[in-house]
């Protein structure tokens, strides 16, 4: 199975990188895009009995390493 973990800063955490990207877009004349937040995507292969088993494993490694839940939130996609 394939798993993808999306990680982004929590909404209450300022994202200066997102703001810098937005400011660059404004410089390019793009004025219809606002509130850019950037994050990261981590993808992996996983051996698991079923989707639930895979979700549990990915949740565990995300909490223990992939995301820092003091500042970040995440979502998991299994396929």
């Amino acid at each position: 199975m394939k798993a993808i973990v999306y990680i982004r800063l929590k909404t209450e955490v300022l994202d200066p990188q997102g703001q810098a990207i937005e400011s660059a877009l404004k410089n390019l004349g793009e004025s219809t895009i606002n509130n850019i937040r950037q994050g990261k995507l981590i993808e992996m292969d996983i051996e698991a009995k079923n989707i639930k088993d895979a979700e549990e494993k990915i949740e565990k490694i995300t909490k223990s390493l992939l995301a820092n839940t003091v500042i970040e939130e995440y979502s998991i996609e299994i396929s």
Binding site: V13, L14, P16, A20, N68, I71
Partner: peptide, 17 residues
């Protein structure tokens, strides 16, 4: 130490980047 949770909080990128 913050990543290990021996100290509270976290250190983000400087606001000026």
């Amino acid at each position: 130490l913050t990543e290990r949770k021996l100290l509270p909080g976290s250190l983000l990128k400087n606001s000026s980047l």
